[in-house]
């Protein structure tokens, strides 16, 4: 099988913490799937995502994406939506579009313009004039306008109203490129489980479970949300 992501014995130990944030994780993710990275707060989801994106250096172990170690080449093929606003507030949306076009060969500026138009956001506006919610949507549009091999979305629906959740999920599903993999980190499982092909349960920096949604439902006889609540019950 042709794997897109290969993680081997990955560990991240922060010097200030007693226990590792990620503990000897090995995982392979296939192409063309929508995968939920699920776990309670502090389970290590964001740490794992940061290492996949090269903004956190692992203590040990390796990550290969599309056969390459994390670096310039992998960043060309990953579209990353972090759990925060990462754009400079003083910029115009049109400047940011130009920037993405300059740096990412797979960025489709026409697609981005269409999505902005459907949201009725004027590209000549500066980010600082937009509401927090609109900024997040602009950021999502930027990410989903790339024809990437791997989309990594960290908590894309956290802290937004149900209508915005629908918009975000619709945007993700209708805009990711064919054959790409989407890795979505969240703890709001009920909103997202209908779109997932596979799930990874993370607890205390370790992989607790990696299976297809279909298998879990067949084996457990319950929804992913219900199973998650059972597994992670306090």
């Amino acid at each position: 099988m042709d794997f897109l992501v290969e993680i081997n014995n990955l560990t991240k130990q922060y010097e200030s913490n007693r226990y590792p944030a990620i503990n000897n994780v090995s995982l392979t993710l296939p192409r063309g799937k929508i995968i939920g990275l699920l776990g309670p707060n502090g389970s290590g989801k964001t740490t794992l995502i940061k290492m996949l994106n090269g903004i956190l250096v692992p203590t040990s172990g390796s990550i290969r994406i599309g056969g390459c170690n994390v670096g310039v080449e992998t960043k060309r093929h990953i579209a990353y939506l972090p759990d925060r606003t990462y754009l400079y507030d003083n910029q115009k949306i049109s400047d940011i579009l130009e920037m993405f076009r300059d740096f990412y060969e797979d960025f489709d500026v026409n697609r981005a313009m269409e999505m902005l138009k459907s949201l009725q956001v004027d590209p000549t506006r500066r980010l600082q004039t937009l509401s927090k919610g609109t900024k997040e949507k602009v950021q999502l549009i930027l990410v989903m306008s790339r024809r990437a091999d791997l989309y990594i979305l960290d908590e894309p629906i956290a802290g937004v109203d149900p209508a915005a959740r629908d918009y975000i999920l619709k945007t993700i599903l209708s805009n990711h490129s064919a054959g790409s993999t989407i890795l979505i980190s969240t703890h709001l499982i009920s909103d997202i489980e209908q779109v997932l092909d596979e799930v990874v349960f993370v607890r205390n920096g370790s992989i607790l479970l990696y299976n297809s949604v279909e298998n879990i439902k067949a084996e457990q006889g319950k929804s992913i949300d219900a199973y998650f609540r059972e597994v992670f019950a306090c």
């Binding site: 994106n53 090269g54 903004i55 310039v72 080449e73 960043k75 060309r76 990953i78 990353y80 972090p82 925060r84 606003t85 990462y86 754009l87 400079y88 740096f103 990412y104």
Partner: peptide, 18 residues
């Protein structure tokens, strides 16, 4: 500081550059 090590750093350090 802001573009390298705060929130903006999440974009700066994921650009495909060395």
């Amino acid at each position: 500081y802001r573009s390298m090590y705060c929130d903006e750093g999440y974009l700066t350090h994921t650009l495909p550059v060395t």
